[in-house]
């Protein structure tokens, strides 16, 4: 076990290094520049601006400097378009917001998705099955840029105590978390239903059933462990996706989260911010995968020997 974790850590570091290097060169291959502006910046001014950020240097020099700053000084650099703002500040401020929203919406997704999927599997091909699934699937049959505004207009404008957008009171978390949660609830329900059905027809479940164990005991004691593997395998990527991909939700509900930076940094060509975000995100993914692997090992004894 410990050897496994250590080797995963080593791989993680290599992964991050490759990731940083790739990103560094990819962002510099993009058309346009961090200095693109509707009103063109005069040439002599542009020269000074580039000298300040070091972008006037040859790319290999920039790369060496960047690695040195990151590794030796843990310095991810400054924003180019925003005066005197550090990349680490942006990440430090926005990540807790995204994390909170992500945890809450994953919670909502689990509460809706897993029971719906399990009930649908246990009552396979009954009206209950179909109604559970249909309800769970709402979240993917309408895009978030429809569900979000719909919730805002109905609940937000309708209820005096709910704001349509903003991030000042705890009640502001509700609508965005529901919107995000609904999407993932659909995935979890479908994956849980399929996984449960796979397990319920396995021999050991038949054996348990033949022994006369009660149906609820079979589901809870025996089937859930194996049946939730696909759903659990999905939570890692889903969570990562929520951190980087919640741009739409963030703009609809005016949330100071991380998703908008992934989009804006790319469109603004904020080189250091993109690199910093990718590095941070890479950390999360390496960590989350490690965690997901551990959970899977815990859920499935067969994997332990592998």
């Amino acid at each position: 076990m410990i050897r496994l974790i250590l080797s995963r850590l080593g791989q993680g570091i290599i992964t991050l290094f490759v990731l940083v290097t790739l990103t560094f060169f990819l962002v510099r291959a993009m058309p346009g520049s961090p200095y693109t502006d509707e009103k063109k910046i005069p040439e002599h001014t542009l020269k000074r601006m580039k000298a300040y950020t070091g972008l006037d240097q040859p790319v290999p020099v920039q790369y060496a400097r960047y690695l040195k700053n990151v590794i030796l000084h843990q310095d991810l650099g400054d924003l180019i378009r925003r005066d005197g703002v550090k990349v680490s500040e942006i990440i430090g401020e926005s990540f807790p917001v995204s994390l909170g929203l992500g945890v809450l919406s994953i919670g909502i997704a689990l509460i809706i998705g897993i029971p719906a999927g399990v009930i649908a599997a246990v009552r396979k091909n009954t009206a209950l099955d179909f109604s559970c699934l249909a309800a769970a699937m709402l979240g993917i049959c309408l895009p978030s840029f429809v569900i979000g505004p719909l919730l805002a207009v109905t609940a937000g404008l309708g209820l005096k105590s709910l704001n349509v957008a903003g991030w000042s009171s705890p009640s502001d978390w509700i609508l965005p978390a529901i919107t995000l949660g609904l999407i993932n609830a659909a995935y979890l329900a479908r994956l849980a239903r399929g996984g449960m059905l796979d397990v319920l027809s396995q021999d050991y479940i038949r054996t348990a059933r033949a022994k006369g164990a009660s149906p609820s005991r079979i589901v809870i004691r025996h089937a859930l462990r194996g049946g939730l593997i696909p759903a659990v395998a999905f939570i890692g990527p889903a969570f990562a996706g929520m951190i980087s991909g919640s741009f739409v939700i963030e703009t609809i509900f005016q949330i100071p989260g991380m998703g908008q930076h992934f989009v804006n940094a790319a469109t603004d060509r904020e080189f250091f911010l993109i690199q910093g975000l990718v590095l941070f995100y890479g950390f999360l993914i390496v960590g989350a995968n490690l965690l997901a692997d551990l959970v899977q090992i815990a859920l499935n004894p067969r994997l332990r020997s592998a």
Partner: peptide, 17 residues
């Protein structure tokens, strides 16, 4: 690990390129 790298690469940057 290759999948991890692709997963973490900035989607928009790739699309623009």
């Amino acid at each position: 690990r290759f999948v991890d790298i692709l997963f973490a690469l900035p989607f928009l940057v790739l699309v623009i390129l």
